[in-house]
Simulated scan of single mutants.
Amino acid sequence: MLSGSMKDPAYRNGTWGPAYLVQGGSSDMGVLRLEPGQSMPNHLHRHCDESFVVLEGTCTLWIDATERHTMTVDEVFRCVPGEMHFLVNDGDVPFRCVFIKSPASPGDTVTVPWVPGEPVPVPPDAA
């Protein structure tokens, strides 16, 4: 058995960003926190799904730089392998969600630079 706690997670950027809670085996699980105006870089995963369960606040989720979704409390979203996703807290309160990557695939994240308003990027190996 593996266990973790959301009580005081080790966020990547101090008080915000992703924080892994349980890693390994069939999945990786963590929590993501974004203050208003903060974002997670546009990225994709080659081999794993990434799912999000919204705990608090709202966030905009961009899929493949073309589809815009508003993430709200109690909603669940899943991005499949190869699907670019960009999250931005364009609200006025902190956003927090649980994320689950399955299967666990260390090193599977591919950053694809993009922000809303820019042309749709071509992911590496897709050209």
Rank of each mutant, 00 (worst) to 15 (best):
S39M: 12
M40S: 05
M40Y: 10
P41T: 11
P41A: 07
N42M: 12
N42H: 15
H43A: 00
H43D: 08
L44I: 10
H45L: 02
R46K: 13
R46G: 08
H47Q: 07
E50A: 10
E50P: 01
E50Y: 06
S51E: 09
S51C: 05
F52H: 08
F52W: 13
V53S: 01
V53W: 13
V53Q: 14
E56L: 02
E56A: 06
E56R: 02
G57D: 04
G57H: 01
G57P: 11
T58E: 08
T58R: 12
T58L: 02
C59L: 12
L61Q: 00
W62S: 01
W62V: 03
W62P: 04
I63Q: 11
I63M: 08
I63R: 04
D64R: 11
A65G: 03
A65C: 14
A65M: 06
E67G: 00
E67Q: 14
R68L: 05
R68P: 06
R68E: 15
H69E: 10
H69K: 09
M71G: 02
M71V: 06
V73I: 10
V73K: 12
D74Q: 10
D74W: 11
E75L: 05
V76Q: 05
F77Q: 12
F77D: 02
R78M: 06
R78L: 04
C79M: 12
P81G: 11
G82L: 04
G82Q: 13
E83C: 01
M84S: 06
M84Y: 12
F86C: 00
F86P: 00
L87V: 00
V88G: 03
N89L: 03
D90E: 15
D90F: 15
G91Q: 11
G91K: 08
D92M: 10
D92E: 07
D92I: 06
F95N: 01
R96V: 06
C97I: 07
C97G: 02
V98N: 03
V98R: 02
F99S: 01
F99P: 00
F99V: 00
K101R: 13
K101N: 15
S102R: 09
S102E: 08
S102G: 12
P103R: 03
P103E: 06
P103A: 08
S105V: 14
P106W: 15
G107T: 11
G107A: 08
G107S: 05
D108S: 02
D108G: 03
T109A: 14
T109R: 05
T109H: 12
V110L: 13
V110E: 08
T111Y: 15
V112D: 12
P113S: 13
